[in-house]
Amino acid sequence: MSTPSGPGDVRCEPGPGRTHGETGRAIDGERRQLTNLAYRLLGSLAEAEDAVQEAYARWYAMPREQRRGIGSPGAWLTTVATRICLDLLGSARVRRERYVGTWIPEPLPDRTEWISGPADDPADRVTLDESVSMAFLVVLESMTPAERVAFILHDVFRYPFAEVAEIVGRSPAACRQLASSARRRIADARTPAVPATEQACLVREFKQAWEAKDIRALVGLLDPGATMIADGGGLVGAVLRPVEGAGRIAQYLLHIADKAPGLTLLERTVNGRPGLVAQSAGMTVTVAAFDLTGGRVRRIWAVRNPEKLRPWTENGRDGRT
């Protein structure tokens, strides 16, 4: 089985005559590909890291002779990591039914805005393209685990359906149907693409209106049918249900500004798109991602769950190196 190209792909397959050390380095070189895949499958960097680590643990638990007999270690790791993710997705659906409030995928900063940390931090290996935008990840959450895996493997990472079938344990025809169903979900939710520069300008105007507590300006920047969803996970205060309508969202934002007068808003890249970060006493407390339509904000996803803000809060930094 080959390892197709995908976001952040690092193809490392052992050749004849490789020493054990060379093979080990090649195996370690697969981490970027595996982390990219697992994050898109799970929507959580922490869970993705655990899944990749478990795949490596299973690899090194095999006898050396058995490992040497595997023609493509990268493909083996991809298969194992994907199956681990598939199992996690099944159990995650049950866990998220008990989640306090709405579960939102874990937001990631841009590499240039990443906090200082270990050189091998797994988030450094996540390529921030359109397939990790918050809007895209939220649609993935609406899919069945099998749909999500088939779609990500085929449409994002370009695996042939024959290989997808081998990984997920279904027929190629079934995998085609799963990916097609997932594709329809994506198409139904898709809005016209907005250039990053245009989104950055709108987010800046939104930030300035929020800081000025200008409710008329906020309402004007929001689509009349806009929705705001907050994720506190029951660990911090957050509205448990979506806030709908431009007027209600604007009022809610002003309520937050009045309740936390020392809040600082920063323009940051969130999952590859312009967003906002709110800080209190120098610590990140909220990361907001935006979806635009017709020159206005259509959706806001505000992540407040501190367990999902690890990349933004470690060591007290603000997410910028």
Rank of each mutant, 00 (worst) to 15 (best):
L34H: 07
P274Y: 08
E244K: 13
P192H: 12
V126N: 06
L202Q: 10
A38K: 05
I300A: 01
A135M: 07
E13D: 08
E166A: 14
V126F: 07
K308S: 10
A187P: 00
P16L: 12
M134L: 13
V243C: 05
D50W: 03
V168G: 00
G29W: 05
A135I: 09
A135H: 14
T321G: 12
A278P: 00
L77E: 02
S44V: 06
A179K: 05
Q279I: 02
D28K: 14
L266P: 00
E314H: 11
S5H: 11
A162Q: 11
A38V: 04
V243A: 04
R11E: 07
R296G: 01
A51T: 07
P195G: 10
E113V: 02
E163W: 00
L42R: 05
W301Y: 12
I186V: 15
A75F: 05
T82W: 00
P7Y: 04
L309M: 11
G233Y: 08
I70K: 02
L77T: 04
K207T: 11
A38P: 03
G262W: 01
S116D: 12
D124P: 00
P73D: 06
A246H: 09
D87L: 04
M1V: 05
E314R: 15
S171T: 15
R184W: 11
R248A: 12
V219K: 12
V219Q: 13
I115N: 14
N271Q: 11
S142P: 02
P14H: 09
V164D: 01
S5P: 00
T313F: 01
P160D: 13
A209T: 11
M143D: 05
I115A: 12
R241P: 00
L263E: 08
P73M: 09
I249S: 02
S180A: 15
T127R: 11
L254G: 01
L218N: 06
L292P: 03
L77G: 03
S142W: 04
E130Y: 09
V164M: 03
A257L: 08
P107D: 10
R304Q: 14
V80M: 01
A302C: 12
F290W: 04
V277T: 12
R25P: 00
L34K: 07
M62N: 01
A38T: 07
A200V: 06
R40D: 06
L37W: 02
R248N: 15
G169Y: 01
L41A: 07
P107T: 07
